[in-house]
Amino acid sequence: MAVLVSAGQASDPTFLVPLLDAVRVPRVMKGRPRKRPTSLRMDRAYGAGVYRRALRARGIRCICPEREDAKKARLKRGQRGGRPPSHNPEAYKERNLVERCINRLKDFRAVATRYDKRGWHFLSVVHIACIVLWL
């Protein structure tokens, strides 16, 4: 759907919105492509408020359990802590499809080792690996 390459030391929240903007799902009938998925499955590590707020602003449902430190902080605040975020455990189980896809990409030596000096060249290698996996 979309692939972005960033600097290794860059934080993930910086690239969440540009990655969502890069997604373009063509419609079966005529019309402009969809740019917003209905839901997004994320790892528990990405369940921070920064990610949840960015998704909520775009109307995307976040399927991610609450982090333990966030749960403790929310409970510590008492009634001011608010409600816990909703979570669908059955939908969260399907997240392994993404994890398996990333592991399949790492089967390609050029993707796993990242010897390329330029980001655009590495991105082209990732695209070629995605095409090979898709075929």
Rank of each mutant, 00 (worst) to 15 (best):
M1N: 11
V5L: 00
V5C: 03
S6D: 03
G8L: 01
S11P: 05
F15H: 15
F15N: 09
L16P: 03
V17T: 15
V17N: 08
P18K: 09
A22C: 05
V23P: 04
V28N: 06
V28F: 01
K30P: 02
K30V: 09
R34W: 15
S39E: 15
S39I: 03
L40W: 05
R44G: 13
A45D: 09
G47V: 04
G47N: 04
G49W: 01
L55M: 10
R56P: 00
I63L: 11
E66I: 06
E68L: 12
E68A: 14
D69Y: 09
K71S: 14
K72C: 01
A73P: 01
A73V: 04
R74I: 06
L75H: 07
R77Q: 10
R80M: 02
G81W: 02
P84S: 07
S86V: 08
H87Y: 13
E90N: 08
A91G: 02
A91T: 04
L97Q: 15
V98T: 14
V98I: 15
C101P: 00
C101W: 12
I102V: 12
I102E: 06
R104Y: 09
K106G: 03
F108K: 03
V111K: 03
V111I: 14
T113F: 14
R114E: 08
Y115E: 09
R118M: 06
L123C: 11
S124R: 15
I128F: 13
